[in-house]
Design a protein around this nucleic acid. Structure first.
Lengths: 191, 191
DNA sequence: TTAAACACTTGACCTATGGTAAGAAATAAA
DNA sequence: TTTATTTCTTACCATAGGTCAAGTGTTTAA
C-alpha cells in the first residue's frame, strides 16, 4: 500500500472522508525520509510539522537540567508524532524527536493543517477522536506509573506492545516506563 | 452569568459558535444539581453523560483490588468531567465520580452529543482542541510523576492550582499527586 | 579489522516513599 | 452540646527503585 493510502485508510477508520477530500488531504502531506539517529525536532525550535509514520520507529524525549533524557513516546508504523503544544501554538519546543530506525514519514505544516481542519470537518472529527483516545491512554499510563510497580508496568507493556521489544533498545524502554536501565535489568532477571 | 451563558462563553474561547448554534447547544444541555458526597457515576455503570461544571467541585477516581481509591481528576468551576471512554464507547465505567461540594452541572447525553458533533463542526473543533490540551497536560503530569520528587509536584501544584488547596481535603490532593496522605503530611512539615 | 561507542548487567549502598498504627484536631451529625 | 466521623499528623520500620561504579558483550564507524 502506498504511503498516502495508509494515511487515508487510518483517517477513515474513525471518520468518513469523501473522495474529493482524500485528494485534498493527500496533496497537503509531503513524504520525507529520515535516517536512524537523525533528529526530526530539536529542543528550542518550533515544531513546524505534524508527522504520520508510514514506516519506521521514533522517540520523543526531553532532556532535564542534569542532562538526562526522559522519553515520552515511542511510536512506530501508522501512528502520529509531533510536539502538539509547539505545533499548534507555534512556540519553541522543549522536546526532541529522533529516529530509532530509518523511517518514512508524511508531514504537514501548521499552516496547511489549520486550513485543512477548517475546510474539512471530517478531519477535525478524526483528530478529535484521536486526541480523545490519546488523552484516555495517557491517564491510564499516569495511573499505572503512580500506583503499579515497575514490574507490573513492564509486564503490561510486554503483553500490550511486544513489537516494541523487538525494535527498541531496553534503555529507551526503561525511560518510557519511568525507571532506570539498571532497574529494568533487575526486573528482567527476576522473571 | 446564567449557567448556559458560561458554557457558551467557554466554547467561544476556542471555537466560533453562531447564534443559531448557541441556541441548539444550550437546549441540548440539562441543568442538574448534586449534593456534596453524592455520586454522579458509580463503577460498573455506563457513563451516560458528559458534564460541564458551572459551579462546584468533583473528583473522579477508581478503586483498586485492595479497596484503595486513586484519584484521576479534581475538577472545579467551568471545566468538564466524565469518563470519556465509557461515555463515547458506551461501555461500563471503571471509575466513580463524586461531588466534593454541592455543585451545579450542565449535562448532555451521549446520543445528543453525537448528534451535535455531527451537526455543528464548530463544536467538534472545540472538543478537538479541548482533548488536545488535555492530552498535553496529561503527558506533563505523567512526566512529573515519573521524574520529579513528590515535594516538587506538591510545590508545582500549590503554585499552579492554589484554589484547590482552599476547597479540597489534603487526602484527595495526596492521591491526585500519586502519594499517600502520610507522605504529603511529611512534605508539608518539612517546608 | 580495529577502535570506539553503545547496550546491557551486576553489585554495594542509599533514599524517598510506602505500610502500619495510633492519636490529635477538625468537621459533621445527632 | 455531645458524639461520631473524617481529616491530618507523627513515629517506626520496610522496601522499591535510584545512584555510582565496574565489567561484559555488541554494534557502529574509521
Amino acid at each position: 500500500m502506498p504511503e498516502d493510502n495508509k494515511l487515508i485508510y487510518y483517517l477513515n477508520k474513525w471518520s468518513d472522508i469523501s473522495k474529493d477530500n482524500e485528494a485534498t488531504i493527500t496533496s497537503a502531506f509531503e513524504l520525507i525520509s529520515i535516517k536512524k539517529k537523525k533528529d526530526l525536532l530539536v529542543s528550542g525550535e518550533v515544531c513546524n510539522y505534524l508527522y504520520f509514520i508510514t514506516q519506521g520507529c521514533l522517540r520523543s524525549f526531553y532532556i532535564d537540567s542534569k542532562g538526562v533524557e526522559h522519553i515520552y513516546q515511542i511510536r512506530m508504523d501508522n501512528s502520529w508524532i509531533s510536539d502538539l503544544e509547539s505545533f499548534f501554538s507555534q512556540v519553541p519546543s522543549e522536546y526532541n524527536i529522533e529516529a530509532l530506525e530509518d523511517s518514512h514519514l508524511l508531514r504537514i505544516s501548521n499552516e496547511r493543517m489549520e486550513q485543512l481542519l477548517a475546510e474539512i470537518p471530517q478531519l477535525e472529527r478524526y483528530f478529535r477522536i484521536l486526541f480523545q483516545k490519546a488523552y484516555v491512554n495517557a491517564l491510564t499510563r499516569l495511573n499505572a506509573t503512580m500506583w503499579k510497580t515497575a514490574m507490573d508496568r513492564y509486564n503490561d507493556m510486554l503483553k500490550e506492545h511486544p513489537e516494541i521489544f523487538q525494535r527498541v533498545p531496553l534503555i529507551y524502554i526503561a525511560s518510557y516506563l519511568g525507571i532506570t536501565p539498571e532497574s529494568l535489568s533487575r526486573i528482567r532477571k527476576q522473571k
